[in-house]
Design a protein around this nucleic acid. Structure first.
Length: 678
DNA sequence: AATATCCGTATTTTT
DNA sequence: TACGGATATT
């Protein structure tokens, strides 16, 4: 078998090991993807049915990439492998088998923002917002809830550990969460946490649980260090009869603890799965030794340290550079220069990436790239589906899909003039949009007995009604056509509600474009929440994207990827580590791992930039600025591991007028005096 | 009851 | 800053 030859002994062991639990510890660049895809291909080759293999990955994109690679080795039948994220797998399983636990297959999936809105609603309904003002706000509630579910800890414990300021509201919060769960159940809605929770519940249900678990002969899990306790429990339940499971991960690359991911899952795996075989992949095939040396040095300072150092047989290579820039503008300039220089050396743009901590860290660079006509695609930090206007339009689709979805009704109705929460509630009552999924049919009511509305809202309510009824009465309408039809109602409304309609209008175009790729409305809505566009390329007209383009990405979104040349920007204290994450040693260690992940994405060339000065953006034209320190993670390692460079950027000193002629204050003085004369 | 205005505060990463 | 939330106004 030809593809089989270029595995090293450890990889080969992982690929061909016999049935049973296996833990693969794979350092950065050790051929993790290759090993997993090799394993899947090998299993298929051994006669395992592809549709009985479950491959759990971190993103939809990773799953697609792996299946594509498996296909090369095992042929087209590899397409039948179940691949996806925990959440998307839960979604599929629950749509098929959810009836067994009283879940209608048409359930809708809500994102964190919707979940927070619903909690906010309940908070008001229960009167919890009133008595004092320190009751947690909706986003905090959402965070607490997610933490309780995914860490499997008690509410009391979570509040004590992570939200001590709210401990006195424990009872109120508990009440609210109970009501929240009930409402979701009544309205047939699942949030992200529920997807996992219900999957677990399905597995725990006598009779059904075993059947679901037995759907798969083999389960493989990528990026295991970034799973949470609930996910580990799901895996245990999935594998209680057939114990064939392989998990692959690297404890040094765990960067999702904010989502309750815990490396404990990796450490405990041998306990959870008795007799687990442990295989270590330590040889790095990606980076040059100087890059690895620097990355290892950064990790050495971690408080808690697991991994041994990575090594490579790749000889030579330049030391990574740390480039000190005068300010952010100089940084952008320097990145552009170096990217272009690399391209001159023969490294195409798409084999280069610029990485950063937060989505907006690339804003200034994007301006510079655009002005120089350097094409780029950005991954991560996209807020497309969270934008209010996108949510508005999707809410109309949600109403059509699930007419008892009060949250969406409320959102849409409140857009209309003279309709606020009170009137909206009244209208919902008239339509029979009940809490419970009752016998009433709101759309039928809308058609037969239109509710009374304030006179100011009459016209736009009529437009909404027409759109809803037309789409509901036309079963053949494609998702894109539905979006188009809704826009006819929405755009006039939207121009009244939002300040800058023109910019936002483009998002609606993009939404329509995405809809045109969807088969059904339900799938469109679900995909939008479960697998939202993750890059600017997902949003752009494909023909508009240059063949060769630079990659911009948050470090989180860069996970698992590699490039010839990597440029890490904003390596300043306050950015990496983020100011928001310097509270505890654990937080700091995670930020450190983040930098480690960024550095180990590089194959041949690694440039790390940090601006000395940050201007306070905003208000006046003053030159308010603060000086930054180099990231503490870099400052504390042996300077000999890096090449240090200073870049001042383009010359900004253009001379001042004062130096050109004589000084004349008389005009200004007269003007100032004149201000106060009557 | 809806909307305009003001004030204070959080501010990241993603399924 | 920009946004959410509380208060003032229509």
């Amino acid at each position: 078998m030809s593809w089989f030859d270029d595995f090293n002994p450890a990889q080969r062991e992982a690929v061909t090991c016999p049935d049973g639990p296996v833990l693969v510890l794979a350092g950065a660049g050790a051929g993790k993807t290759k090993t997993i895809t090799g394993r899947v291909a090998w299993l298929i080759d051994q006669g395992v049915r592809p549709d009985r293999i479950l491959l759990l990955t971190f993103t939809r994109r990773a799953a697609d990439e792996m299946l594509r690679r498996t296909e090369r080795q095992a042929g087209a039948k590899a397409r039948k492998v179940w691949g996806g994220t925990f959440h998307s797998t839960a979604n599929s399983l629950l749509r098929r088998h959810g009836r067994a636990i009283g879940l209608s297959p048409a359930f809708s999936v809500i994102d964190n923002a919707d979940s927070a809105d619903l909690m906010d609603l309940i908070r008001t309904d229960l009167g919890l917002a009133k008595p004092d003002k320190r009751f947690p706000r909706k986003d905090t509630l959402q965070a607490i809830y997610g933490r309780v579910v995914s860490s499997r800890l008690k509410l009391k414990q979570v509040l004590e550990d992570d939200f001590p300021a709210y401990q006195e509201y424990t009872e109120g919060i508990r009440q609210l969460f109970e009501a929240y769960a009930t409402r979701k159940r009544e309205q047939n809605m699942l949030d992200y946490d529920d997807l996992l929770l219900f999957w677990k519940a399905l597995l725990d249900t006598p009779g059904v649980g075993d059947k679901v678990a037995d759907l798969f002969d083999h389960v493989l899990v990528d990026e295991y260090q970034d799973t949470n306790l609930l996910q580990a429990e799901i895996l245990q339940a999935m594998r209680r009869r057939k114990r064939n499971i392989m998990v692959v991960g690297d404890d040094a690359q765990s960067i999702y603890s904010f989502r309750s991911a815990t490396v404990r899952n990796m450490l405990d795996f041998p306990k959870q799965f008795d007799g687990a075989r442990i295989i270590k992949l330590e040889e790095n095939y990606r980076s040059t030794q100087p890059i690895l040396d620097a990355a290892n040095a950064v990790m050495e300072q971690a408080k808690e340290r697991f991994t041994k150092n990575l090594f490579t047989k790749r000889a030579g290579g330049a030391k990574p550079s740390i480039i000190t820039c005068r300010d952010e503008f100089a940084q952008s300039n320097e990145v552009c220069e170096r990217v272009l220089a690399k391209r001159e050396e023969g490294v195409p743009l798409k084999h280069q990436a610029v990485l950063f901590r937060a989505g907006h860290d690339s804003d200034q660079l994007e301006v510079e790239l655009a002005s120089r006509n350097i094409p780029f695609v950005k991954y991560g930090g996209l807020k497309f589906v969270e934008a209010a206007h996108v949510k508005d339009l999707v809410a109309v689709l949600r109403i059509l899909e699930n007419p008892s979805d009060r949250l969406s009704w409320l959102r849409v109705l409140k857009l209309l003039p003279d309709i606020g929460p009170a009137t909206a509630t009244k209208i919902m009552m008239e339509l029979g949009v009940t809490e419970a999924d009752g016998p009433g049919n709101p759309l039928k009511a809308l058609s037969e007995a239109p509710p009374k509305t304030p006179s100011g809202a009459a016209a736009s309510f009529g437009a909404l009604r027409a759109a809803l009824l037309e789409i509901a009465g036309n079963a053949d309408m494609s998702p894109a056509a539905q979006v188009e039809r809704i826009r006819r109602f929405y755009e006039p409304v939207f121009e009244r509600v939002y300040e800058n309609p023109t910019v936002r209008l483009r998002d609606l175009d993009q939404l329509e474009l995405i809809a045109s790729n969807a088969k059904t409305r339900n799938k469109f809505i679900t995909d939008l929440t479960l697998d939202p566009p993750s890059s600017t390329a997902d949003l752009a007209d494909q023909s508009q994207i240059d063949d060769d383009h630079l990659i911009l990405s948050t470090i989180h979104s860069a996970k698992g990827l590699e490039w010839d040349a990597v440029h890490v920007i904003h390596a300043a204290d306050g950015k990496i580590p983020s100011d928001m994450a310097t509270g505890s040693e654990e937080d700091l260690d995670e930020e450190r791992r983040l930098l480690y992940v960024a550095m180990t994405r590089a194959k041949d060339s690694l440039n790390i930039y940090f601006p000395l000065r940050y201007y306070h953006r905003g208000r006046s034209v003053s030159d308010d600025h603060a000086y930054a320190q180099m990231s503490r993670f870099l400052a504390e390692v042996d300077p000999g591991l890096f090449e240090r460079v200073a870049a001042v950027g383009p010359d900004q000193d253009e001379g001042t007028l004062e130096s050109v002629g004589a000084v004349d204050r008389s005009g200004v003085d007269a003007m100032l005096k004149g201000l106060w004369a009557d």
